[in-house]
Amino acid sequence: MDLLQRIQRWYTINCNGDWEHENTISITNIDNPGWTVTIDLYDTCLQSAALPYTIVERTTTNWVGYSAEKGVFKGDGGSENLSEILAYFLDTFLPLHLDADCTMEIGLPAVGYEEKLWLIAEGRMVSESTLEITTIEDYGITGNYLWSDNEILEAINKLGSAPLGLKTDFAVGDLIEPTIFQADDNMLRTFLVAPAKK
């Protein structure tokens, strides 16, 4: 996976219907010439990361500098150093600063209801694209599900409980690469979901 795909995956994992409205990733040029990469860390598993500004100067055009404070990662570099800045964020900064206690809500597809119904679970980030499932909610409680549309929600609510035999193929400890599901109903919900197991 190339660096842009990896940054896209980090962004995707953090999208939850709220985070992406208030936080940004920006790549801009500077007049040295060079690049500045700014990544908002607030409300992510990196939000507490702190890194005093560090600079590596090789030549006047080949240099990089990094810092993290107040919920923002910043990387600067020469005109040929953009990929180095992105690689540093993904390969060095992210693994060193991940909060081991930080978890994210994910939906695990219910067998037979793929793309319609997901059991709520929690996962901890292990890389920019991967979560490890840490907890899975009780199958029998209707409030423990995410749904694709109001029709599915109404069908479950009529039953008063989750349908018997509802299950997911996933277990605590499984590694997943989740994607975003955005509901198209009048509530416009966005949540992170695991792909169905093949």
Rank of each mutant, 00 (worst) to 15 (best):
I136E: 07
G112Q: 07
L146T: 04
D138Y: 08
G165E: 12
N157S: 09
L98D: 01
I120G: 09
I133S: 08
K158L: 10
D101A: 15
P109Y: 06
E137M: 15
L117K: 04
N157H: 08
G143I: 08
S161F: 12
D99Q: 04
H97N: 15
L96S: 15
I133F: 13
I136Q: 06
E151P: 10
E128R: 08
A121K: 08
M125T: 09
I141D: 13
R124S: 14
N150H: 00
K158P: 02
T134F: 05
M104E: 14
D169M: 10
L94N: 02
S129V: 07
G160L: 04
E151Y: 05
S161M: 14
T103R: 02
L146K: 06
L108I: 01
I120F: 04
Y139F: 15
L164S: 11
I133N: 03
I136W: 09
Y145D: 01
F93H: 06
I106M: 00
P95H: 11
E154V: 07
G107E: 02
E132P: 04
T135L: 12
L153K: 04
G143A: 07
T135S: 15
L131A: 09
L108P: 02
L94S: 06
G160P: 00
M125P: 01
N144K: 07
T142V: 12
V111Q: 08
D149Q: 03
D101K: 15
T130E: 15
G160S: 00
L98M: 15
I156A: 03
T135Y: 12
T142M: 12
N157W: 03
D99L: 03
E132Q: 14
T142W: 06
E137H: 15
A155D: 03
L98R: 14
N157T: 09
M125S: 13
N157K: 04
T92M: 13
V126D: 13
